[in-house]
Amino acid sequence: MIEFRSVSFAFDDVPVLEDVSLSIADGEFVVLAGANGSGKSTLLRHCNALLTPDEGEVLVDGVSAEADPVAARTSVGMVFQHPRDQFVAATIGADVAFGPENLGLERAEIDRRVASALDAVNLSGRETERIDALSGGEQARVAIAGALAMEPTHLVLDEPFTGLDEPARQSVLERLEDLAADGTGVVVATHDLRDVLALADRVIAMADGRLVVDEPSERALEALESISVRVPRSRSRC
């Protein structure tokens, strides 16, 4: 369970989030829509205390993310765009093991988690392969496995489809669908809504740092169309 309570946040005095309240239940598949600069990334980075609110509070499973970032980062796995820049090791297995190693787990438990995370993204048994020899879609899936190895209750993805070709995009979508079916909560921020809406339980949209849409996915299209005419104010960072 991820809860935002009246969260506001500014970068260099420019407000990026303004009084955001939101609650995401375990197992929910949420799509976060909105133009570039609307505050999507900033919102997501509050889920695991990569950013902390200026006002308000973010709770993960009832505990303040700021007070216990390790718990928040374990419960909320996060994958960013540009998977190439998120790897810490040259080979798949060593990279996926990084998170569980940081948690101080026993080696046998780490190996079990690496195997199971790779299984979840259809890369079983490929621990010793070099990451820079993989396709873009495979790299995106290794990045997801790196987050899954923490055994999070929620998986949060920030623009995971950027730079992926169509087959790669489909392979990532299929993995997300499977994960959701197995009970992992999924939050996907994207401006590319093709096919994702079909998987989602709920759609949230942001504009100018505020939540402007929060609807079950079947009613979302209409609501999204109503905001798509708005021209978002330009922001230097989000």
Binding site: G99, P100, L103
Partner: peptide, 17 residues
């Protein structure tokens, strides 16, 4: 970007070696 990913994966001083 790497710095964010390291933090999200709990980059710690005392990992399992």
């Amino acid at each position: 970007r790497l710095s964010l990913a390291l933090q999200a994966r709990c980059f710690s001083w005392n990992p399992t070696l």
